[in-house]
């Protein structure tokens, strides 16, 4: 789904810009409550929220819940069917699928959520600069984003994984050494998160920039400017707080995309370093054995789909709750 969110809002910005959340300077406390109530009325969103919470809990509690160590191999039980000692069967190395699902959830969710930090770290400044300054700054930045959007994101992701890998792992000394350290401890997690994040910020930047562009014309911004507030202050104090709703929605909808991208990279063999599992690597390995022992691919696929479903439900619900007109 990579690019659909990137373009749609642009079409709709002119009709919008006066949405509830964007009218006042800071979002009013009463409004927050109303939004929350609206969210709770949306059954799909609540189901999504609960699923997400359960998944997070399961992933965090993986060491307590996993019936076997996730790397323990049983060569006499290769691709054993579900039931008996292994409730969800075993994989190609005779490892317990259930335990790996639990641990894999940690990796997939970590990539999905932490990559948003990278996305926001790049996307927000670009969006703020383009949206606030407008004119040639906006032109240059958005042209750049357009060009990058024309390059398939899988290419980006592949190039970034190989590049970042070289960068992070080569950095034994130097300013990136600490990243390399974490990466080694976390079996290459840093590389994946960075690559997925570097690939995903374009859509977010575009979306937020649209909103900022609309906000810039608002009276309170003009007012702030007239009393001599500098651009940084306006951005930090007036613009950013007013796009938090949009950011929350965007992030929620961007998480499943990151999870999906991690899975696609894993499918191409560029994922996490073994023996740590991710749902993507489990699917990639399982697909090879799909014909006779589909359980090894079905289990992670269902969980992956359910996770993406849950985040999508939640994101839709949040969008409806914040601004019904934002939907699309």
């Amino acid at each position: 789904m990579p690019k659909e969110f990137a373009r749609l809002p642009e079409q709709r910005v002119p009709e919008r810009g006066t949405g509830e959340a964007a009218t006042g300077d800071h979002a009013r406390p009463g409004l927050r409550e109303a939004q929350f109530r609206r969210l709770l009325r949306n059954r799909a969103a609540v189901a999504g929220l609960l699923t997400v919470l359960i998944l997070l809990a399961l992933a965090l509690a993986a060491p307590l819940l996993a019936p076997h160590p996730f790397a323990e191999q049983h060569p006499e039980f290769i691709l054993a069917r579900p039931g008996g000692r292994f409730s969800l069967g075993t994989d190609g190395l005779g490892r317990d699928v259930l335990s790996r699902l639990l641990y894999g959830g940690r990796v997939s969710l970590a990539v999905g959520i932490l990559s948003q930090v990278v996305i926001l770290a790049i996307g927000l400044p670009v969006a703020l600069a383009a949206g606030y300054f407008g004119g040639w700054v906006d032109n240059v930045l958005m042209q750049g984003v357009d060009v990058l959007l024309a390059i398939p994101d899988l290419l980006f992701a592949i190039v970034f994984t190989t590049l970042v890998k070289g960068l992070v792992e080569g950095a034994r000394g130097g300013p990136l050494a600490w990243l390399g350290q974490i990466n080694r401890v976390a079996d290459g997690l840093v590389v994946i998160i960075a690559a997925v994040g570097l690939t995903g910020w374009l859509a977010t930047a575009r979306l937020v920039r649209g909103q900022i562009l609309a906000l810039r014309q608002q009276e309170f911004v003009e007012a702030a400017r007239s009393i001599g507030a500098g651009p940084w202050r306006i951005m930090a104090r007036h613009l950013l707080p007013n796009v938090t709703d949009l950011i929350i929605v965007t992030v929620t909808l961007s998480i499943p995309r990151s999870i999906f991208l991690e899975a696609a990279l894993s499918f191409l063999g560029l994922g996490i370093q073994p023996p740590l599992p991710s749902w993507g690597t489990m699917i990639a390995d399982g697909v090879q054995a799909m014909r006779f022992t589909p359980h090894a691919v079905v289990a992670p696929s269902i969980v992956l789909a359910a996770t993406m479903l849950a985040f999508n439900f939640l994101g839709d619900g949040l969008r409806d709750a914040y601004d019904p007109r934002m939907q699309g």
Binding site: M1, P256, F260, A263, A264, F267, I283, A284, V287, V297, S301, L304, A305, A306, M308, L309, N312, F313
Partner: peptide, 11 residues
């Protein structure tokens, strides 16, 4: 619709 979006095509 959500299934269609959530199931990767390599599955």
């Amino acid at each position: 619709a959500l299934i269609g979006i959530s199931v990767p095509n390599f599955v």
